[in-house]
């Protein structure tokens, strides 16, 4: 097209009309190709397919269209609803604790404290350790009678609860372990945010006579807001999707007390209810979209006003 019009205009003036040759970009589009194929085939295609298969009774070999039955079942069966609610609780608890503890740890670890390097390492290391390993270890530590945690509490004269055996506690116990493992990441993100705050602000605040507490609330907290947004979004999505820790520690038990959508998906898959399992996937996807997108917009909009 462009070649045609070019010859047209050039031909009007010049003696020898010359088509303007379009040279290939030095940044070739085929560089996208390997990634696009792998990503498109193994991530996008299944995601799109899940929208269909979630509407079917499915054996992997043939599928029967059953409309919204799977979703109806999800909202009818108490243990499936329980999973849905648990997922949200888990995400809120873990991300909330990670924000608070991560920020406090980061403030502590950027202050003039001794053994800073050691403390940072110790807090961060669990991030790199196998989740299943952590889960198994804490399952043992949280053993109601022989577990170290309750033995420790007993020494202080407290009778520890059945961390993982008490149905109303199990989910929170797993969430605590999640925080134990993940708070290091929140901390380093906050540290990066705090370190990036120019010293001028603290000096200006000092000249204005701010106390340490005022420093924290009026300088540190507002200025490391991007870090807060990151920590919230990251740990919230992570919390909604969590599977391996729950599976390693409780398998969703006792009963369905600590089931999440992700563990339900696996259970239904194991049981051969592929359509239902896939519907679980779509539910989880919807849950993330419904919660995270507005959350992101809310957090980023408030940021814009500052």
């Amino acid at each position: 097209m462009s070649v045609m019009t070019q010859t047209g205009t050039a031909g009007a003036g010049a003696a020898a009309p010359v088509p303007v040759l379009k040279r290939p970009s030095p940044y070739p589009g085929w560089f996208f190709l390997p990634a696009a194929i792998i990503y498109g085939l193994l991530f996008l295609l299944p995601t799109v397919a899940s929208l269909y298969f979630s509407l079917t009774r499915w054996t992997l070999f043939n599928s029967t269209f059953i409309g919204l039955d799977n979703f109806a079942q999800f909202l009818r069966e108490p243990f499936l609803i329980k999973g849905l609610i648990n997922t949200v609780i888990y995400a809120v608890v873990t991300s909330g604790l990670k924000v608070v503890l991560g920020l406090l740890l980061a403030v502590l670890l950027t202050s003039q404290i001794a053994a800073r390097g050691y403390l940072r390492s110790v807090v961060f290391f669990p991030v790199l350790v196998s989740t299943v390993g952590v889960g198994i270890t804490f399952t043992v530590l949280m053993h109601p009678t022989n577990g170290m945690i309750n033995e420790g509490l007993a020494m202080l004269g407290i009778k520890g609860p059945g961390w993982l055996t008490n149905p109303s506690l199990a989910l929170y116990s797993v969430a605590l372990v999640d925080v134990w493992k993940g708070v290091g990441l929140a901390t380093v993100i906050y540290i990066a945010g705090i370190v990036a705050i120019p010293k001028d602000y603290y000096e200006a605040a000092r000249i204005d006579g701010a106390t340490k507490l005022q420093n924290f609330f009026y300088v540190t907290l507002p200025l490391c807001r991007p870090a807060t947004v990151t920590v919230i979004i990251l740990s919230f999505i992570g919390g909604l999707r969590t599977f391996d820790l729950i599976w390693a520690m409780t398998r969703g038990g006792p009963g369905f007390a600590s089931d999440t959508v992700a563990s339900v998906i696996y259970k239904q898959y194991q049981a051969g209810f592929y359509g239902l399992s896939t519907a679980g996937n779509v539910v989880l996807f919807a849950l993330i979209a419904v919660l995270v997108v507005p959350l992101t917009m809310l957090l980023n909009r408030r940021e814009g006003h500052e």
Binding site: Q6, T9, A10, V18, V20, K22, R23
Partner: peptide
């Protein structure tokens, strides 16, 4: 130099029309 495409007109370097030349 050839780092930007030529939208219109002609560029001759020596005896060569260079619009589409790398």
């Amino acid at each position: 130099a050839g780092l930007e495409d030529i939208t219109g007109g002609e560029l001759w370097i020596g005896e060569v029309l260079c619009n589409g030349v790398e």
